[in-house]
Structures are given as structure tokens and as C-alpha cells.
Amino acid sequence: MKQTITINPPGITEEQIRSLKRGDMVSISGIILTGRDTAHKYIKDNFLHEEIPEAERETYEGLKKFLQGGILFHVGPVVLHDSNGQPYITAAGPTTSIREEPYEYDVIKHFGVRAVIGKGGMGEKTLSACKEFGAVYLHAIGGAAAYTAKSIRKVHGNFKPEFGTPEAFWILEIENLECVVTMDAHGESLHADILQSSNNAAKELIGGIH
């Protein structure tokens, strides 16, 4: 197996991302931000126009700090609180990323996000954003919630708790979270390749059923 490459968000450089190739293993240590369906819609509705609504400016600046050169993790964690009221996470596997396909191009472009973590891969529009702006898609293991939560060292609060636990933007300090690069900044996508090869196999198999 190939050597694992370490990346430390936020503050990931474009050069570092462009050096990654489809199939590479990365180990992430640093601060990342979570966001899924409600988060993406919220970003689109509020921040992708000319004027940022005054009421949302503080959140905008907060998000920017972690997303610029940072990593957005598609996940809706299970969050509990200890006796001091400090949140901690017991389960945090990736959620299906393709639901964010209509939004991700603009999110990557606007904030300069360098990597998205999720599962199942994303489509052509996101792949083109990866190529144009220098970003990668990182695949974690879907459903491996306890395993992934083990890499979360600390929860540093959240933005938009009113979205509910799964949908809020959580600020996570992580250590050695291992992922596979399945979509790189050179237009290569493992998901597109598997789709094509399985399509070819299916044509033959379906044609052979009488």
C-alpha cells in the first residue's frame, strides 16, 4: 500500500492538494468543520449573493476561518454532554455526499475549501470545482461511526445549533483521521470509473438474462 500523506487543516495549501492523486491515503490532523444538508442550503441562501445579511455576518466570518484552506466534513454526529456541559461525540461516520452536489461547487469556490470528507462520492460539477480551485474529495468509511469518532479529540462548539444536532456546523479537533482520495484536483474520480465499469458489466449481465 502507498504511504499515507499527512494534511493539517485549516491552512492547507493549493500546492499540497494538487500533489494528491486519486487512490492516495491521507491522514488528517487539525481543526475541521462539519456540514450537511441544512448547512449547504444555508450557505447558498445567505452567502453566495452580493450582500451578506447583517444578522448572519458573525456566523459568516466564523465559518470562513475554518473553511478557507480547510476541510468540510459531511456528517451528522451523535453528540452527548458530560457533567460540565462539554459536548463530546460518540458516533460520527460520513453521510452520503451526493445530496450536496447542487451546492458544493459554489461552496468550494466561495470559501476556498481544500477538501470535502464524505461517502459515496460526488458528481461532475464538484469534480470540476476540485480541478478549477484545487480541492479533493476524501472518502471515509460509511457507517463506521465509532471508528471515526475515535479520531475526534475535542469538540470546539458549533455554529447554528438551532439547525439541530445532525445539521449544525460542529467545530472538531481531529487526530489521524484516515481517508482515501477518491476525487483529485486533476479531474480523476474513482466513482466515475467504477460507475463506468459496473455499467459495462451490467449491460452484459442484463442482456444475458432470458
Partner: peptide, 23 residues
């Protein structure tokens, strides 16, 4: 590798009595 992590995860969740999957 994926199946290995899945199996490791199953055991971890059992020991900690936490959800196998967050969903």
C-alpha cells in the same frame, strides 16, 4: 481495508455501547 475498518468499528461500538452508525 474498508471491511477491516467496518469489523473494527462493529467491535468498538459493542464495547462502548455506542451506535454502530451515527445514522
Amino acid at each position: 481495508r474498508a471491511l477491516g475498518i467496518i469489523l473494527e468499528n462493529i467491535e468498538m461500538a459493542y464495547d462502548a455501547k455506542t451506535p454502530i452508525c451515527q445514522d
